[in-house]
Structures are given as C-alpha cells and as structure tokens.
Nucleic acid binder design. Sequence first.
DNA 1: CATTTCGAATTTTTT
DNA 2: ATTCGAAATG
Length: 726
Amino acid sequence: MDVSHLLDDLNPAQREAVSAPPGHYLVLAGAGSGKTRVLTHRIAWLNEVLGVPTHGILSVTFTNKAAGEMRHRIDLQLRNGSRGMWIGTFHGIAHRLLRLHFTEARLPDGFQVLDSDDQLRLVKRVVQGLELDEGKFPPKQIAWWINEQKDEGRRPQHIQPEPNDDWLEVRRRCYAAYQERCDRAGLVDFAELLLRAHELLRDTPALLSHYRARFGQILVDEFQDTNAIQYAFVRVLAGDTGQVFVVGDDDQAIYGWRGAKVENVQRFLKDFPGAQTIRLEQNYRSTANILGAANAVIAHNPDRIGKQLWTDSGDGEAIDLYAAYNEMDEARYMVERARQWVRDGGSYSDVAVLYRSNAQSRAMEEALLAEQVPYRVYGGMRFFERAEIKDTLAYLRLLTNRADDAAFERAVNTPARGIGDRTLDEVRRTARAQQLSLWEAAMLCTQSSALAARARNALASFITLVGQLNAAVGELELKDKIDHVLVHSGLREFYEKESKGQLDSRTDNLDELVSVASRFVRSDDEEAAAGMSELVAFLSYASLEAGEGQAQAGEEGVQLMTLHSAKGLEFPLVFLVGLEDGLFPSARSVDEPGKLEEERRLAYVGITRARQKLVLCYAESRRIHGSDNYNVPSRFLREIPKDLLNEVRPKVQVSRPAQLGATRSYGQAAVEVPALKLGTNVSHPKFGGGVVIDYEGSGAHARVQVQFDEAGAKWLVLAYANLSPQ
DNA sequence: CATTTCGAATTTTTT
DNA sequence: ATTCGAAATG
C-alpha cells in the first residue's frame, strides 16, 4: 500500500507518532511542533493502514473550534471523510451519550444543559432556600466548589464531613440541595455532563461493553488540560482493550485553576500499560531567538517532563523590550510599532497584543482608536450568553419542559408583567414545601389565598401565555417557533422599546437568533435517530456552543486577547504587554505553591505565539482600579538571556542633575524642560529610594522618573517623555 | 413594582 | 474607574 501521502511531509518524530504500531502513546508536542497535523495524520493512518473503521475512532478535543478544525482536516485527508467518527469536545461527547441513553442515565427525555450563568442563579436560589446568609456564604464560591467536586468525580455523599468545618458542611448541603433541584427539573450543568457520562458507562455493563467494542481507538488532544473526571472517562472507556493516543504539552498547562491536572500526563504512562512517549521538539513556527527566550524562561520550572524545542530557521530579529512610562505610553508604543509593521509591508492582522487580564485591553483599544488602526478584541460576552438571547431561550425551554425551574425564573417576569419578588417568593415557598416544580407551584398559587388577587391574576395570565405559546408553536418550523415566541411573549416589543434611540444591538441580536435558527441543521444522525427533537437539539447547541465572543466580521485588524485565549494560535508579530510583577505574574500567584509555575507556563505560551518578531513591554506606572501602581518589571524578563533582548529605550545615564531649562534627549523623544517641579514627587519603596517627578514644558508635557545614586551626586533617568498632549 | 442610590468587587475561560 | 447587584426610596 502506498502510504507516502501520510508520511511525506513529516519529520522523523512526527512519522514515528503517525505510523506507530497499535498501542498506547503519549505524544509530547512542544509549541509549534505540528501536533494537529500528527493527530489528523494518525487518524488517517489508523483508518487507511491499520484498517480501523471510522466508526471505531473517538477523537476528543477541548474546544468546539478545535473539534471543528479537526473534523475539517480529516474530511480533507480521508477518502471517506469523517463520517461515523465521533469527534468532539469532552462535553459534546458526554452530552451525546446522555441523549442516546437518557433512560439508563436516569435523565428525562429532553433534559436541558445549564450554562454557568444558569447554574449560578440556581445555586443562589438554593442558598436562599436554605435560608443562608449570602454574604457569609457567597453563592459564587459555592457554585465554584460544587463544580470542583464534580470535576473530581465526587457526589455529595462522597464528601466526608469534617467535625468542625461548618463551611464545608454548608457547601455540602448546598451541593446536595442543588443537585436535587437539577435532577427534579431535568437540568444538567457542564460538570454534570461529564460526571454522569462517566457514571453511565461505569455502571451500565451492557453499554460499556458496547462502546468499548466500538471505540477501539481513542485520541485526546491537549491532554495536559484534562481534569480528573475526563481522565476517568477515557480510562473507563478504554478498558483493557481500547488504545489511547494522547497529545499534550506539560509546559502549556495553564488551566490548573479550573481543575485541569497536569499530573494526568505522567499518570497516563503508569495507568496505560506499555505506553510509549514520543517527543516532538522541532518547532516550525518561531525564530531561534524567540525559541531561545521561551526555552530559557520555561527552564526555570521544576518538575517538567523535559523537552527542548529547537528550530533550523535562523536567529531572526532580536526581541525588543520597551520600558513604558505608563499604560498609555505602552499602548502608544504598540500602535506605533504596529503601524511601522504595516508600512514595512505587513498587515494589521499579522499583529497580536497579548495581555494577562482583560482589563488591560482598554488602554490598547483607546490608542488604536485614536490612530484609527483597525482591531478586534477577543473574549467577552458570547452570542448565546446575551441576556436578550437567554430570555428568549428561557421561553423555549419552558415549552420543552415545564419543570425547568431555571427557565421559569428567567421567563416569568421578563418582560415585566407584574409578577414581583413577593409573588415569586410565595411560589418558591410552595414549590419547596410540596416538592413541586416552580411551574406546578405557580398553578397552585393562582388558587392560593396567600396572594393578592392582582398577583394571582398576573400569575394565571403567565400560565395561560405559556399554554398559548405551546399550542401555537406546535408544528411550526424552528425559526418560526422562535419568532412566534418573540412576538407573543412581548420580548420583541420590550427590547425594541428599551433600545429606542440607542445604538443598542439587542433587537439585532434577536433577529440574528431567528436567523441562526433558520440555518440550524442537526449535524448528528445518531441524535436525530434517537428521536431528539429539533428544538431540544437547538437549545443544547446554544448551551454547549455559546458562539463567538465578538462578531467575527471578516475585517482584518490587530488582534487583542488574553494569553489564555491565545493558546493554539500564532502571529507574525506579537506584543506581550504588562510584564510587571503583580500583574504578570499576577500578585495572587506568588504566594501559593505551584501557581507561579503556571504563570511561567503562561509566559511560555505567550512567547511561543510569535513567529517573526516579539515585542515585550512593561510600564513603570500603571493605573489599576483608579489608583497608580508602581511595579517592578516581571521576573520572567530576568529569565530571558540578555543577549536576546534589545532594550528599545535604554535607561539614560546623566552625569549631572539636569539643568533647568535644558534640552535633553531621552531615547527617541527630545523634550524641552523649562522647570522641574519637585513638589509633585512620589516615592515608592520598590524604586529603591527613587523619586518620581512631574515636570512640564511649554509645548510638551513630560513626566520623568529619577533615581539618585548613593552619594546623591548622580541622577539616573529611568522614565521618559509622555508625549500625549494634556 | 420601578427607579435610584450606594457599596463591594475586580486573573485567567470552556463547556 | 467601572461595573454590577442589592438595599432604599418613590
């Protein structure tokens, strides 16, 4: 058989991985080493060379985007495409199993998926229902903790009560109560999808042997990001017969804070007998200088599995390091360099600005806006998470399942129809007392003497409304169902009124929802065969794939995103901004053990995003939450060998105190200095006895930071002109 | 019940 | 600084 098309354009290590004989494999794939290519080629190899049928292959990723990309590439690669293969996220796969086997999973037909926002609201209700003080027991922390338990595979009954730990006991009770409400209402949160799918397989021998027989080949991408329950899922499904091929990079594990266990990588070698490790260390992405910096930084982490990236491309340009005066100066510099890049023949879409926290995007955006440079910010509110969209979907959920308390809470008084907190409290009390859903309780309450006639009427008309919607919507097409609900629930009118005159896109979003629904096709034959209704499928889709964070309008521009969301991407020119201790690494990471290492991996991820040119920035002063902060440059900067760095504005040594009225050139900016105003100085311990001085010129406004030497005879000018006019 | 006001919080993100 | 949610007010 001619297998050359599967191996031709691969290097020896990649070939070894792709063409490995049947067995368990751990592929340690460094940044930019071609791991997706290895994964897709391996799948093709399994199918075409080893004769594994497509329906015997399960391929798991972490994001929908990655899953889509994977399916696309396999479709191009394989003669018969990916038909029959299961390719998806852990959550997507778990969801599919639960839909197909809802009876065995003890779920109602048409159960709904709760997103984190729904979950938090529900937890809040539970906390209130248990009459706990929300101030003392923040629902957010409780929800977080519940997810943590589920990620570890723990049910409330698995949690050992600690004699003197009330807080633990409170959380345990909340977990139990929350779970009970979810079960009764037919609601499944994200973590529950995984937990339940695992239990389903573990506890249903017939199903387990069926799926073990079916999926002889399991492939997992981004394995370093798996949590305990995901690992357990893979393990139980593989059993003694399934062969598992995992790809990951312990140096890029940056999701420990949400339960990912890097240890799973090492554990894999122990748990899966005969597992072989294959290292992909040749990098095809970055210049040697960039790689050198990345390797040097990550080398400071202890307990690595060990890997040294190399490249046969040239050194490339030096890495620039810019010491900005403040975050505005940092942004200004970034824009200047981006424009220069474009003048030199590049494109704005080659450029990415990466930062540690979303709050840092603002200064960048303002500078880009001021210079009319096109840009795009990633992250933020996603389409299906928008309030107006969720309001609409709440009605649809209620139509699907009257017991959906989360949907009831949301829909009942949106738009306002005179059902206030008083009324709802009564409904909630009734539901709790009689173990009913809110919907059933509401029906009871329309007869209850505990409520004023007005409230009873309001409630009754809501119940009637839902009944009417249900009757009307019956045989309509999905998009017409939504449109009908939008009009007759009053939501359309409500949002039209609200956004009147404003540049508000809420009504546009409602139109877009109808449009999305009209384009919606169930991709999954098996689910359709299992009798899942189109509406249920659409609602699940909305929860599981919240959509893009920002309109993906094809317009090209500078891309702004956090370091976390940059993982897996690459750009010719990368700015890593805000490299200050306290920001990056974040202040919270320096105390707790292990946290600093994760920050360092984040730095490693950031550096390795750059193909051609990397620009590092830090600001000597930064406004955070309204007050000025003075941070020292990030410790990660010190971990980069000096000879790889080009300090763009080197610190200027001045032999004598600057003369009043003198003109002096600091780096690139010549500043007229008529007078020093010592009165506005600020000192800070982190400056080692230095002083910050404002001084103003007639034409320019400048601010300079000055440090004295020990004798007080010399000044060192540390920071420079801020050229923005006041 | 709706509007206003005041106070607390404020890494990272997917599903 | 800004935002978001809960208490206080109309």
